[in-house]
Every structure is written in structure tokens, then in C-alpha cells.
Design a protein around this nucleic acid. Sequence first.
DNA 1: CAATATCTTCATAATTCCATGACAAGATAC
DNA 2: GTATCTTGTCATGGAATTATGAAGATATTG
Lengths: 227, 227
Amino acid sequence: MPQTILIVDDEKRLVALVESYLTQEGYRVATAYNGKQALTVAQKEKPDLIILDIMMPEMNGYDFMRTHRAQHDTPIIMLTAKVEDDDKIIGLELGADDYVVKPFKPRELMARVRNVLRRAGKSEPLGKILKVADIILDRNSREVLVGERSIDLTPSEFDLLAALMTTPGRVFSRLDLLDVIQGVRYEGYERTIDTHIKNLRAKLEEDPRNPQHVETVYGVGYRLNKG
Amino acid sequence: MPQTILIVDDEKRLVALVESYLTQEGYRVATAYNGKQALTVAQKEKPDLIILDIMMPEMNGYDFMRTHRAQHDTPIIMLTAKVEDDDKIIGLELGADDYVVKPFKPRELMARVRNVLRRAGKSEPLGKILKVADIILDRNSREVLVGERSIDLTPSEFDLLAALMTTPGRVFSRLDLLDVIQGVRYEGYERTIDTHIKNLRAKLEEDPRNPQHVETVYGVGYRLNKG
DNA sequence: CAATATCTTCATAATTCCATGACAAGATAC
DNA sequence: GTATCTTGTCATGGAATTATGAAGATATTG
């Protein structure tokens, strides 16, 4: 039975991104957009872990945590804005198990989720091994095989490829992909993706000038060929 | 048949952690969250050893021990909060076989468990011998061979290597590894791992500047090469 | 208690990676 | 074919991460 994780944040775009990541990793996901709603959802879903934003309308993260903790000992990871170290201290004193500073890269949050769940003694779902065409990507060992050949990717390249491989054939816009490697934020230069794609192709493709795996969809973005 | 160890503590997270360690070492584990519950479980499971917290709701550790000892002579290791030496004295007078002060490192508790079981004349489970590439690590004698050469590791280095060897190829984050050598604590400094890795490499690798066994995975952590 | 070994932390050097912008090359629409 | 928009490529400064050495703190041993 998959473990359930509750995400509580008023930024829906962020919730959606995190949800898709957690789902990919094999968790069941519940969502709430403020503390009050979160109490209801937590009651019903009995999550194994809660990812909690501090700043929220209606009822903020601290209030939620106090109330929730009165009756449960669900592990909590706090999302804090990048200000001072104060939040860290307050958060941990209040009983959070870990915290992540916004904006965060999805990969970082995933690492903390695994860590907290493992510490809490919950069995960790083994990250899936993705296979598309002759590409094999192992999220645990972070190894990538193309045919017989093992290739060495940087963190951004790995994350991009992993994202593309979760839904081969689907077109990802540059903004989609930017979220993947930089986290959800409102600046960010779309062209950065082009460069990463170029570097990824250089390592992945037989003939980088004629990419067989990572295709360009003119005017839209990139997609991975199902093969 | 594996030996059974009963853990009694109201901190569920701690119980889970210790359980995972004991399981890993090959013991069977039973758990209880207060003294009253522990009596029932002990009755049914006939544990070979009991790890017992003193401060607990419902029925505390002292009361449990008095009651239990009236009918059994199961060895007991006490968990005491870090206060005075009083607990130690009281605990040992009451018949505990050993005690560990919280917060403790998992490795320390494991050592005491082995010790107490050995003293009690119970045979110790054979720690596995791990082999990866040309590295052989013996958990019983705590010896490590690299090819023909025997190397001398500090406790932390040994534990790190052992952890890496349990799943060669997998990337361990610094937080993962920090748990291994420090147990669960929040103040741990991730960079400490870098230093241990450096020292480990100095002993393990032919050319520490070009590590063949312990690889760095940029932005993520370290992994042991299956090779 | 002293001596020794180990662990943690810190400062700094070395390395790797990333974002950006400029320009070239390619695609599309007309 | 040309104008225009989009994508590919490359170089570079700077950001982020890791390696290393040393010193102080802590633990262990005799």
C-alpha cells in the first residue's frame, strides 16, 4: 500500500508540481490550500507525511502544526521563505522534522521526503527505473544507460531527462522544464533549457545534429521519442 | 532462529529507528509504547532482550522492570535521559544489565546489545560479511580487506563503508550518511561526511585523488562503485 | 588523569556546473 | 525568396559544490 503525503500550500502551481513528482515516485498524494482545509483533509486521509507551507491565508502553517500535533505525530516538512534562520529554529522547535527553503528544486524536496520517511521508520518506496526506447534511467543509483553505454549526466541534465522519460511522447514547454530544474519561481530565462538540451543531446544521441531521442517541437518545446 | 528483542519507548520515531537497525543486524523485533503494553507483548513474544525507556506514560520503565523481573530474568538495557548519574545507579540497582544515555548513536546501542546478549550466554547472530569489488568487510571482527591488504578504519569510517556496501551503486545523500554515524539529530553538519569520506578514501583507494571505489555524485552525495 | 585517537567544524582552494547573452542556423508564413 | 520568428551553439563570468588541511572539541584508552 503506498504511503500518503499531504501537501499544504496556497500556490497551486507549486502544489501541482510537487504532486506530480511525488506521484511519480509512487506516493499517494492529498492536497490542501490552507491550514483549515488541511485539518479536514488530514483527518480523512491520515497522511504518513505532511509538506507544509508556513505563509498561507486562512490558517497559517504554525497554527496548523500546533493544532495537528496535539493529536498526531505525523512527520512534517516545512516550506519556508528565504529570510532568516529564524524560521528554521521556530519550525524545528515547533516540531517540524525538516525544512526546505523556497524556491527549492524538486529533487531536493524529494531527497528530504525520503529521508524523513526513512527516519520515521516507514519503508521507502524504491524509486522506479525508467525505460524508454534504449534508455534506462535508475533514480536510485542515478545511473543512465543508453544501449550498452553508460553516460554521465550533470544534476540538471539528469533531472530533465528523468522528467521527459516520465511521459514519453508528451511535449514539455520550456517553462515546464524550467520548473523541474529551478523550482517554481517567476523569473527564469527559458533559453537556459536550450543549452541543457544541447548538452544532454551531446551525451545521449548518436548524432547530436540529428537527435533521435530528444525531439524539438517547433514553437512549443521538447519531447522524448517513445522509440 | 533469530533472537527477539523488545523495544519499549513512547517515542515512536525512536522505536522505528532502532527497529530498523536491529532488523538490519538480523534480529527479530517486537515493540511496545508503554510499560503496560510491554508486559503483554513480553508475555507473548518471550524476548531475549528488552530495550527499555525509563520515562513513559501509563507505566514507566521502573515499574515495568519490577513487575517483569518478578517472573523473568530477561536481560534489560535501559534508555535514560541525559540528566544526572542517578538514573544509572537506580537503573543498575534495579537489575538492568546496561544502560544507554539519550541521545545515543545507533552504533553504540548495537554494540551494547551484542555485549549484553553475549554476556547472557546467548549466541550472537552472525553479522554478514559484505563483499563488493575487491573489498571485503566483516561486521563481526570489523576487519576490512582491500585486495590482499588489510586496512584499519575508525568506527565512523567503518560504518560509512558498511552502509555504502549494503547497496553498492546506490547514491547516498549526506543526510543519509549522517544518520548512519550520528543517529537522528538535527544539528548535524553535512560537510562532516566530506571529511570522513576523504579519510576513508585515503585508506581505501590506490590514488585518493582519483577514487575508484567511493565516487562523488555531484549535487547528490556519494556512492560505492559496483565494479 | 594523561595520552592518544577520533570526530566535528571551519576556512580556503579546486572543481564543476549553470545562467546568460550574442550570434548563427533553421523553420515558418507569406 | 524574403522577412520574421524560433532554435542551436558557443563562450564566459559567476554560482554552487566538493576537496583538503588544520585546529579545536570530544571520546577513548591506559
